[in-house]
Design a binder for these strands. Structure first.
Lengths: 106, 106
DNA sequence: GTCATTTGGTCAATTTGTGTCCAAAAGTAG
DNA sequence: CTACTTTTGGACACAAATTGACCAAATGAC
């Protein structure tokens, strides 16, 4: 377990990484050949990074790729639940279904 | 708690409801003024029902709307997790984030 | 065989999301 | 205040995904 502030979004984490390294949006964006404005939006969770970009970001900031991917993925679930105003218990139901599917199919 | 086969998808549940009532796709589809083929796809989880349609279906089969909606929503989560090949533990992380967000913001 | 039911492919139309561009806002220092 | 940099945010064209309708093929019942 690395020591990372918990309960943060992918974008916030990205911003923290950038600030820790004392870099500007433009600097990071240029290094990865992407639009400064796009990177800003990703940090604000207004655009979704591609898997490829997450990998590049992990390499750039020298952090574990899987950790970053997992943070991104858990955000996806969070947004889905908040957007559709689901009960939290739906997660339990989903979990049961998945366990069931995993043991009974592939 | 009503007695419903657990670990079923929304579509399978819908099919079961229809069969219990001894109805054909065409009969149900016509009653709700929708394409037979579309209803078939919904039963096979190849098309997503709208919230409005879920309500109509609940009314038609005289089942609890929320129960049907919840089943639909949990499927959504399940598909997302299976499609993106997420670890199951991502659900735990997501749950923590949501609880945190709910107590610290809205 | 006939007839009804179910499945599955195609397609146009809509909806949703992406990345780029540019300008406005906010921040920093002289 | 000015000059400069960084960050934000709107607008847009483009791409990708989803939808519902239509129709034909497959399956099932008899």
């Amino acid at each position: 377990m690395t020591v990372v502030k918990k309960y943060t979004t992918f974008g916030e984490h990205l911003r923290t990484l950038r600030e820790i390294n004392g870099l500007t949006l433009r600097e990071v964006a240029t290094s990865l050949s992407l639009d400064t404005s796009l990177l800003a939006k990703i940090e604000r969770n207004e655009r979704q990074p591609t898997r490829q970009l997450i990998k590049q970001l992990a390499d750039f900031f020298k952090v574990d790729e899987k950790e970053l991917v997992d943070e991104f993925l858990s955000d996806q679930i969070v947004y889905k639940i908040l957007n559709e105003e689901m009960d939290l218990n739906i997660l339990k139901v989903a979990e049961s279904k998945i366990k069931y599917l995993k043991t009974h199919n592939g």
